[in-house]
Amino acid sequence: MKMVTLVVATTADPASINPAKALLAMPGWHPGPTLEGGIRSFKNGDSLRLLEHDKFIIEEDDLDLRWESATGETVVELFFLSRHAAVSNRPALTIHPIGVPHLEDGDVLPQGGRPGWAAPPSPRIGPWLMLLKKLAESHNLVPEFELVWEGIGLGEGAPVGVWSRKEGIWVGHLLSGYSLPMEDPGKSNAKITADDIGGTWKQAIKVAFDATKAAFPGGEIMAHLDHK
């Protein structure tokens, strides 16, 4: 069974479709099958596929399983080209695993996802972040799409991030303050412990920890705490 990497883009997001157009302008692409819902696909070589649709990315679920069902190819890696807004509102190029580990069933999902779930981090996130740093320094963040084609191995280069355990370090989930919701225990003369603080912050940490552990079996998991 053929193993492929799937890149997903949407015409509803300029931050998604512009890099996708740049990718498709490179040599080697051929039209692929159209998935249910009018999702267009393109193939490049034996292992790279691009899906292009007209909805917001958060409105499409299980694209890997749908591709496998339509083609018989197994999706081993999935990249979403999308816009991401941070509280700082500063422009940046980044890559991160998806998930909303702090939410519970019934909670509103403003950005999509599945409550209380986080994806296993890709072993290639660390190398991609280093590539982003290099590109930001050498190109002053322009053109942004070059982080994509260099990363996935187009342009006669090798894919970035084919790492082995002996190289020693990976990157997992980043939990922002909003994904660690805590409830004020109120005033008390007694010493407050973690058990006294309500909210789903502990759930979020556990879900992210379990997903990271599943992605890197046998690895040692370390946490970095940064308060700004």
Results as ranks from 00 to 15, higher is better:
residue 1 M to N: 00
residue 2 K to L: 05
residue 4 V to Q: 00
residue 6 L to G: 02
residue 17 I to K: 06
residue 19 P to T: 01
residue 20 A to D: 01
residue 20 A to Q: 01
residue 23 L to W: 02
residue 26 M to K: 14
residue 28 G to Y: 07
residue 33 P to F: 02
residue 34 T to R: 08
residue 34 T to H: 09
residue 38 G to H: 07
residue 38 G to C: 05
residue 39 I to Q: 01
residue 40 R to V: 08
residue 41 S to L: 05
residue 43 K to T: 12
residue 43 K to C: 07
residue 44 N to A: 11
residue 44 N to E: 08
residue 44 N to K: 06
residue 45 G to R: 08
residue 45 G to D: 06
residue 47 S to W: 04
residue 50 L to F: 04
residue 51 L to G: 00
residue 51 L to E: 00
residue 52 E to C: 12
residue 57 I to D: 05
residue 57 I to N: 06
residue 58 I to F: 14
residue 58 I to Y: 15
residue 59 E to I: 04
residue 60 E to P: 04
residue 62 D to K: 15
residue 69 S to W: 07
residue 72 G to M: 03
residue 72 G to N: 06
residue 76 V to N: 10
residue 77 E to P: 01
residue 84 H to T: 10
residue 84 H to S: 12
residue 86 A to L: 06
residue 87 V to E: 12
residue 92 A to F: 14
residue 92 A to Y: 09
residue 95 I to K: 01
residue 95 I to G: 01
residue 100 V to A: 07
residue 104 E to P: 00
residue 106 G to Y: 05
residue 108 V to H: 09
residue 111 Q to K: 15
residue 113 G to N: 06
residue 117 W to P: 00
residue 119 A to W: 13
residue 124 R to V: 02
residue 127 P to V: 03
residue 132 L to H: 01
residue 139 H to E: 12
residue 140 N to R: 15
residue 141 L to A: 11
residue 142 V to D: 13
residue 142 V to I: 13
residue 143 P to E: 12
residue 144 E to H: 15
residue 144 E to S: 14
residue 146 E to D: 15
residue 148 V to M: 04
residue 150 E to G: 09
residue 152 I to F: 03
residue 153 G to L: 05
residue 156 E to T: 11
residue 162 V to M: 13
residue 162 V to F: 11
residue 164 S to F: 09
residue 165 R to C: 10
residue 166 K to G: 14
residue 167 E to K: 08
residue 169 I to R: 12
residue 170 W to L: 12
residue 172 G to S: 06
residue 175 L to G: 00
residue 177 G to F: 03
residue 177 G to R: 08
residue 179 S to I: 01
residue 182 M to C: 14
residue 185 P to C: 07
residue 186 G to A: 07
residue 186 G to E: 05
residue 190 A to F: 12
residue 191 K to I: 13
residue 192 I to S: 08
residue 193 T to A: 06
residue 194 A to K: 05
residue 194 A to M: 07
residue 199 G to C: 08
residue 204 A to H: 02
residue 205 I to D: 00
residue 205 I to N: 02
residue 205 I to F: 07
residue 206 K to H: 10
residue 208 A to G: 04
residue 209 F to L: 08
residue 212 T to Y: 02
residue 213 K to M: 04
residue 214 A to Y: 03
residue 216 F to M: 07
residue 216 F to A: 06
residue 219 G to C: 05
residue 222 M to P: 00
residue 223 A to H: 10
residue 223 A to N: 06
residue 224 H to L: 14
residue 228 K to P: 14
